[in-house]
Design a protein around this nucleic acid. Structure first.
Lengths: 247, 247
DNA sequence: CTTCCAGACAATGCATACATTGATTCAACA
DNA sequence: TGTTGAATCAATGTATGCATTGTCTGGAAG
């Protein structure tokens, strides 16, 4: 049995829940994964703009690899919904329409609400609860300072941390995939966001429900949190970008 | 624009929601997809028993293909959770533990409830409603006749049909993946199932809520339906198979 | 007898070669 | 001038070859 296997079930693995781009230690990975992470990173960060079309050969050249691992990476990205492969036209970085984001958020929301419900049912270890409290406080501090970007990072971490405790690896992984898809949309509305006072309040409410172990309450509160936050996100997207494709 | 593209948004595509194994027209597919569908079929139908381990080369020989398309198919199956690849030990058909099934059903349930809610919100076209009514009636007939297998098929179709109307392709696709994963578990408890009178009643209730366009009611009823049905399925699995891996 | 090390072997991961097939262009005919 | 057809070309999908690397076995030493 490998080390990776048993470590998987001891501490919550944040990376699985938070596929926020990161390229550390990318050199020691297999070529296929390097290609995957590299391309994903470029797409999510906007360095590969939506609509960009490249041939498999060009991608291989770009990454200094042969077509085989690049191809496998591209297939994975396509299944994840980040690119589209049209058999003789190359792979295109998918633009996200508002409808796309709405669809993604629908899935994301349904899954995350369930995850929170599960966490409440399992019960939140004291250590984790303290960590989450700390994150909530940090967010409130950033709200006060008006640093929305920092707040947003912490928000990601907060949600991911809860999800990582749900005990359902598949659920966590599915959420990771959704996360990646909505990341670009999230990025581009960060500067437009109003002060997240309401979210901070709701986070406290969710934490309280989790601490109580009241799964129905946690479920309800998180559902409301997401409904409101998603509606806001969609509203911002719609009003500032029209309904066409975008980053 | 290709034919497949616009047809996708006209009529509900049941295949996407119902990845029930089927191998028709498999000869005219690309090798990669042939490999994928063929292997998936064999796994889901139990012709490749859980625990079976094969080398890439052996699989290629089995399907009369080279390693490349087989490899891509295997990667897809692995992402879907049906097989596990251990780098120098071959690919193993994953056994499903009760915990696995519980995890899968958790996701499935969360997503399907959301899908039903969406359908209620969108509104159910009269044509579709009539189709669903017909399916419900057919199920009731099978219940009366005591043909659980036939009932189960219809139940699949009923659920898939509703999901296909939710207007969220990604959601539908995600449900398809879950479906595949729980299929084996479902298969092996079919003969153990009690008469599904309760499900028939609940189906009527869901249809009613859908007809009314009451999304909250639809959501509630479907949630209850799934909770009960899933619990029953898990109970049957647990009591008749122990907690170890199985088909 | 058990454990550790070294060497051989074989499966995979990557690279590359090849064939298929669809797109594009140019020309001819209506 | 517009449309249709064929021919060429190039990108992908598949096959195969090669090198890396992990595993397993056998032997020796503690």
């Amino acid at each position: 049995m490998s080390k990776a296997d048993d470590s998987l079930h001891r501490r919550p693995d944040l990376r699985a829940a938070r596929p926020v781009p990161s390229l550390q230690g990318i050199t020691e990975m297999a070529a296929r994964d390097r290609a995957y992470h590299d391309l994903r990173y470029r797409i999510l960060m906007g360095r590969l703009a939506p609509g960009t079309t490249l041939l498999e050969t060009e991608l291989a050249g770009l990454l200094n690899l042969s077509r085989t691992p690049v191809r496998e990476a591209v297939i994975k990205l396509a299944e994840e919904g980040l690119v589209e492969v049209r058999p003789r036209h190359g792979v295109t970085v998918k633009p996200l329409t508002v409808k796309d984001v709405a669809d993604i958020l629908d899935i994301f929301s349904a899954l995350e609400v369930r995850a929170v419900e599960l966490v409440a049912r399992i019960g939140l270890p004291a250590t984790e609860w303290r960590q989450l409290e700390r994150l909530a406080s940090d967010m409130e501090r950033e709200t006060a300072r008006g640093d929305i970007a920092a707040w947003s990072e912490l928000d990601d971490e907060f949600h991911a941390h809860i999800v990582a405790l749900c005990g359902n690896d598949r659920l966590q992984e599915a959420l990771g995939a959704c996360w990646g898809q909505q990341y670009r949309a999230r990025l581009c509305i960060v500067p437009l966001r109003p002060s997240p006072v309401q979210s901070d309040l709701e986070h406290r409410g969710i934490l309280e429900a989790l601490k109580l172990g009241d799964s129905a309450l946690a479920r309800l509160r998180h559902q409301q949190h997401r409904d409101r936050a998603d509606a806001q996100q969609l509203h911002l997207l719609k009003s500032h970008l029209g309904t066409n494709g975008m980053a």
